[in-house]
Amino acid sequence: MPLLEVEDLGVEFRRRGLEPFRAVDGVSFDVDPGQTVGLVGESGCGKSVTSLAIMRLLMPRGNRVTGRVSFDGTDLLRLPIRDMRDRRGRDLAMIFQDPLSSLNPVISIGLQVTEVLQRHRGMKQSAARAEARDLLDQVGIPDPDRRLKEYPHQLSGGMRQRALIAMAVACRPRLLIADEPTTALDVTIQAQILQLLGTLVRENGTALIMITHDLGVVAGLCDEVNVLYGGRIVERANRHELFATPQHPYTHGLLASIPRLDAPAGERLHPVQGSVSDNIPWTSACAFAPRCGNEVDRCRSASPELTAAPLGHGHQLRCFNPVLPDGAGVGATGGSAPVDSAGEAL
């Protein structure tokens, strides 16, 4: 049984003087214990908002959250806020992109970690102190005794992120949500942090939701990958399938736009046209249609559903005219392709 089931999650921003905007539009996915699930997409695709909605960290004012987030059988969205607060940190923890602003600048690292331990695990001061030391040691912070007394600004970016991870895993949460945890870090430090996260997941059996824009990070870390666009999942597969046979034009385009370190030099990139601001709402069309080079008439008049992809096992797709490798049979050239591979959706 999955640890976390997100069903038809929707988040609508309502702001004074603006039309309501659906940031997350019917997102569903499961996370098994010990599994790493990736949410990938560009800015504005709703990946961060999804995680905040799961943690119930969106302001109740101006944001309407719908759907069901069931964690170990309990619907988190319907939990009294007091119970939810208890679960945060204990059952579910989160790591953010900017480690400096996520730490309290005027409290020592040691106090910030022990605070979590005292609150959620009811530990005594001295026991918490010892545990905090062990935690810092565990996340690879050298000389933890000295670091415990230091303040966030005295630590480097990588060390701060480690300290945050230490706080997040302090209570052995069963689910860890990492929101772009390495985006603010240098590549060599990023490699350290990704290695650390991988180890934590493997050894503690923690489930991890990895939110990132970097397909490279996903390729190395995630078991299952969800590609988001305009607030909906457009493609879902395990990582080997996704990178071997990407079928949604958007995923395809993303992969073609990334310069690869191992590609022959001078190879031209094939970017997705336009930008995220060219989105259209999902209501009666495919939101990606204006940027898609593969669209057919139906893409503009009907909204595709997430259904089984023509290729692969458990590979799901939200597209009327997927991109298929040559010789796969289905009309890959686009334009007048008569076969709708996702036709049964309607």
Binding site: V187, T188, Q190, A191, L194, D214, L215, G216, V217, V218, A219, G220, R239, H240, F243, L255, I258, R260, L261, D262
Partner: peptide, 10 residues
């Protein structure tokens, strides 16, 4: 350290 979008290589 640079991640490559290719699970096999990774």
């Amino acid at each position: 350290a640079v991640p490559v979008p290719d699970p096999v290589l990774e």
